[in-house]
Nucleic acid binder design. Structure first.
Lengths: 241, 241
DNA sequence: CGACACTTTGACTGTAGTCAATGTAAGTGG
DNA sequence: CCACTTACATTGACTACAGTCAAAGTGTCG
């Protein structure tokens, strides 16, 4: 039935996710193979070097993608937010380890069935391609951060990125844009360190420095308030010594 | 004519590039919009934040993709070798600056005509998608290096990567695999620093250290000899202090 | 209340950065 | 052919930023 409704119609991330600009037919087919799944914080979603069983869209929560060296040193190589897609198509094994950073709700697609759909519907593949290009852009931006920014710039950049992606932001939109932001950090200090290539201690010290400079305020350990996003943006590019 | 020959048939990188597994028809159409172009070392190929005029396959030479901070700090976010593809489809502006690291020969495709071809031939887009996924994998691997490896591991990893990608290697394949490698560095020390998030001096010091450890030998400043690739691989993951 | 996980703070260390001088190779012109 | 220039690379001395080790502080949950 061309006009029939699907669970997708009510989906919170429908318009932003890969499902965003698909035809009615494509949505119906995707909906048929979709299964919702809850994963609690700390649980593994994909193990590296293993054939993944499913692909997924994130409906709620944050997922971290990590790589590890033989001696245990870890690096987060990607953070995935609601509407992001998880899984590497056309690869036999996942190049990274995916773990729920917070409690997560996924919309999963069985591997074989999804890859078959991909082959049949260039539209779905095209959306996924665009998403992958965005991920590549983000990865390259992060390479600049990891290779060339100081600890304080790294932490400021991280906070700025979270502020921008947490658009559930309590935002007082002022006359020209939004200057104020309040959000919860989806990561522990250890995770932030693994994302920025720093130690826990250095992350903590830089946070207190930003606090003492008045660029951020903290409510508890997880909630961050940014009175003036421009100040944070400045701190993200220019080292404040 | 279904059996007609094209310039592509004689192309050295034909089987590895995006053109690799296309249908006869797709190759013919691609061939029609292709133009060869030479760029000498140091010349700009794409300027960041500008609409690129063309896409290209690299036929010969090495291209570096860089990002720069306001104060001039630079980071190479990608190195492209023969058979790699240059240009970001579906983006109005290039997210990075592309420059010829060595003399380069390109096979270029005009932007509009290529994007039109992409729309019409899912096969070409699919190949490009797979290539982009590989690039993302490489970027994430590099994030691990930038965030978590020591200077000596970084330099060793870099040399190993070049050794692997320069398969024009003078390789004495021993009974079980190739242990020996000899290759030319496509980058100056300054470029290597920008790729590894290090300074020129640190790169130089680590090179002399690897030399004094007998892991590499140098012929002039550009040619590197690796008697035993396994030793280099070890140095790339485990810090030698 | 106590146990545990996470975070902050402090003192000290070490790795890589900075500044400066010297070395090397390739190319130019007298 | 040999000074001279220029660009790139190496080496050395010193510094500083972030890491390490250790202790104390904070918050949460049973």
């Amino acid at each position: 039935m061309p006009g029939s409704t699907t669970a997708c119609d009510a989906c919170a991330i429908r318009h932003r996710a890969v499902c965003g600009s698909l035809t009615r037919d494509e949505i119906l087919q995707l909906n048929q193979i979709a299964r919702h799944k809850h994963v609690s914080a700390g649980q593994t979603i994909l193990t590296d070097h293993e054939r993944p069983e499913y692909f997924a869209n994130i409906i709620a929560g944050v997922v971290k993608l990590t790589k590890t060296l033989a001696d245990g040193r870890q690096q987060i190589v990607g953070l995935q937010f609601p509407s992001d897609f998880i899984g590497r198509p056309f690869g036999s094994r996942s190049p990274y380890y995916a773990e729920a950073a917070t409690d997560v709700t996924l919309c999963t697609f069985g591997k074989e069935r999804f890859e078959r759909l991909l082959m049949q519907h260039p539209g779905i593949e095209h959306r996924l391609f665009e998403h992958t290009l965005d991920e590549l852009d983000a990865a390259q931006e992060w390479m600049l951060l990891l290779g060339r920014k100081s600890a304080s710039e790294k932490v400021a950049s991280f906070l700025l990125m979270i502020a921008r992606r947490s658009r559930q932001v309590t935002c007082e939109a002022n006359k020209d844009g939004l200057h104020f932001a309040k959000f919860d950090l989806p990561l522990t200090r250890a995770d932030i360190g693994d994302y920025l290539g720093l130690t826990i201690e250095t992350v903590s010290r830089q946070m207190t420095r930003l606090k003492s400079q008045g660029i951020i305020k903290l409510e508890g350990m997880r909630t961050v308030i940014v009175p003036e996003l421009d100040h944070l943006a400045e701190a993200a590019e220019i080292d404040q010594s």
